[in-house]
Design a protein around this nucleic acid. Structure first.
Lengths: 333, 333
DNA sequence: ATGAAAGCGCTAACAC
DNA sequence: GTGTTAGCGCTTTCAT
């Protein structure tokens, strides 16, 4: 016999019926000590591993959690993922991960693919799914979490924070520090980055004194190097007048900082720099870069907990959950 | 009717048999244009999504690829993952990912879990699986790739490079630059890091002139901050004599560089610093940090291609594939 | 506490 | 090119 052993093989060897073996696997406490031991021995001897597809089909429970992030290379989503993985362990769930490359259309396609695995829940990043995707998800009858940002009309559950408010607060901080010629550099410009830019503009509009703003964005994906290039662009655009730059993330901010040093600009005297996401490096470079911190790991974890609770039919908050953010002030501003 | 539509529902609506619908889904070219169109319309109308568990059970093909990495938070494995994901797309495979936290025992447990999904292949990081895990994998009868480092006795397929040789080359580079009091700082100390350390020691042993070495390692996980702390430790141990540090990765190297600046040590005059992995930041800090580059994305990609080829029964190289590495010399050394 | 029978939704193998 | 039949390996339901 060379094929993989199945339940029947184990049952036969243990001298019990298939269903008893199944019980040992899922509800060991429902089987007598004696039989359980016989079965466990047989399983070990045969090296039996339960066939997940058959199990899922018969029980109508896949044990799968679908997760879609916009980018595998952005460390920010990686941290969310870590939270997700830390939480699924306790719940015997397998994660199926998709990377939609910031594209709602690709996300829609991924959703159909992932739905075919009959996931018991789905975690999405952001709130800009296509209408068709939203319909699919509502029809799927599984709990869905939209993560990272807030929306008035969630598909189902929603956990995040306001990127607009964070952008506004950080910009206000720059203004309070006395800077009046503010640059904004942004890459990729996904919905959350755009919210930050809106916050930036609102803060400037709301400020009583006169101030200048110079916005420089690119659809290119973000990198440290790009931060240096965009800083140059903003300085050129402002004819060197710009005295503070709001970088839409910490990678750009690091690049801007390194570039400033190469140009012998003093930070924060000649130029203030702030970022977003509060990566480890931002705290450790000289000067430390002011940034916006948010509980990414926790968001991922909480999304899973919420999903699981909902699956069990427990009552869960259906209103968006605002996890907040924190403006971290450092020497760069 | 509120339950999810199945093949039969689609077939009935389209006025065909179930198998025809199945064919439209998997081999559209085997169905006449007319019927195919009818079926596609019915699928759309019902919002039908194929049940993966049933499909996998009946066809004995799961469409799943299992991947285990030692850490989700280490960007290095992330890049490998990106390679993996970039390749699976073309092959209609879903990735199931496990994080074994650098523990062979946890890896063993993960392997059993992941095997229950009947994956069509498995990608593992490194070569230090438990004996039981190796047996399980051999019995599973699926192609397995051990990635990142090389081994004489692979479980099945093997793609990687010699971390020992890379460590040796980089250390020799330091010696060639005239440094004679070499520090080694290492965190986590997984098998690959240990190989780098062995290379470090071999290079020193092989060098004709007298030289000193100071090795400082910790089981803690690596971070930028830790790099600064370990640098302090090495300087203390060497009574300030150490004139070059080999950092087992670029995070530590960055931390060491930032710390050197705080201590007003000139790099590379007072202290040379080199890292491993060649992260983006290493090229952009001032001075740039010398490092070891390796084709991580490509390794991930190649692993998938190899696995798929093997699954199809194509001939694939069974000998380890050495993808090599590159010593990147920058101003820090 | 244990088992027998039925069936989950799909596809392989074989007809036609 | 299309359909029929059988069965993948497991769990549900119901009986004992």
């Amino acid at each position: 016999m060379n094929r993989k052993p199945n339940l029947k093989d184990v049952a036969q060897l243990a001298g019990v019926s298939a269903i008893t073996v199944s019980r040992v696997l899922t509800n060991p406490e429902k089987v007598s000590d004696k039989l359980r031991h016989q079965v466990e021995t047989a399983i070990e001897e045969l090296g039996y591993i339960r066939n997940h597809a058959a199990s899922a089909l018969a029980s109508n429970r896949s044990g799968v959690l679908a997760v879609i992030i916009p980018s595998l290379s952005n460390i920010v989503f990686n941290e969310v993922l870590q939270g997700v993985y830390s939480a699924v362990k306790q719940h015997q769930l397998q994660v199926i991960l998709g990377d939609c490359h910031y594209s709602p259309l690709e996300e829609e396609k991924l959703i159909t693919t992932l739905l075919s695995q009959s996931p018991e829940g789905m975690i999405l990043t952001g709130t800009d799914q296509t209408d068709y995707a939203k319909r699919l998800l509502k029809n799927a009858g599984i709990p869905v979490v939209q993560l990272m940002e807030l929306t008035e009309q969630p598909i189902d559950l929603n956990i995040g924070f306001s990127h607009l408010a964070a952008g506004l607060d950080m910009t206000t901080h720059l203004l309070q520090q006395g800077y009046r010629k503010l640059g904004f550099i942004g890459a990729r410009m996904d919905p959350r980055t755009q919210q930050r830019l809106i916050g930036f503009k609102q803060a400037i509009a709301a400020w009583p004194d006169a101030c200048q703003s110079y916005v420089m964005t690119t659809p290119q994906s973000s990198s440290i190097k790009l931060g240096g290039q965009l800083l140059q662009a903003v300085l050129a655009e402002s004819a060197g007048q710009c005295d503070a730059v709001f970088c839409c993330n910490d990678d750009l901010a690091l690049g801007a900082l390194f570039e400033s040093k190469r140009m012998n600009l003093r930070v924060p005297q000649d130029l203030a720099i702030c970022g977003f996401n509060d990566l480890e490096a931002s705290a450790l470079v000289e000067p430390g870069i002011s940034s916006v911190a948010s509980p990414r790991f926790e968001m991922g974890k909480q999304a899973v907990e919420l999903l699981v609770a909902r699956s069990k039919g427990e009552a869960v908050p259906t209103a968006p959950i605002d996890v907040g953010y924190q403006i971290i002030r450092r020497a760069s501003t």
